[in-house]
Design a protein around this nucleic acid. Structure first.
Length: 109
DNA sequence: GGTTTGACCATAA
DNA sequence: CTTATGGCCAAAC
């Protein structure tokens, strides 16, 4: 993208919803978008999380995976490794392909 | 105010 | 399994 996402707005709403996901559970970008009232903004959930400042340790961004239960980070590859580590630290199993084990069961709605 | 860009999603081939 | 396509929409430029 041509610029970065900073400042309040849609992002803050995303962070609020993501913060609602309980420990040891996961949610999809689409779920978060739906919780925001617009199922069509799934892309912006990722967009907002990509812009998430490092200070936001209160936002469990690692609990957000794509609709297939996979870690989806396309750019910033090192971040995806960290997401898996964080998930495993919560007791969520992730296989070598980046798939969340028992994703359907752990999915938070 | 038009263009570009995405940590998406569903579907199709 | 991969690649392509269309749709969606906020934020940055």
């Amino acid at each position: 993208m041509t610029g970065r996402v900073t400042g309040p707005g849609f992002n803050e709403r995303v962070y609020q919803v993501v913060g609602r996901v309980p420990f040891g559970r996961v949610a999809t970008y689409g779920d978060v978008a739906a919780a925001l009232g617009s199922p069509t903004v799934a892309r912006h959930v990722g967009f907002a999380l990509a812009a998430l400042p490092a200070d936001r340790d209160d936002v469990p961004w690692h609990r957000i995976v794509n609709a297939k239960g996979r870690v989806s980070i396309r750019s910033h590859g090192s971040r995806s490794d960290r997401q898996i580590l964080l998930l495993q630290a919560e007791g969520i199993e992730v296989d070598t392909t980046g798939r969340v084990v028992d994703f359907a069961r752990l999915r938070h709605r």
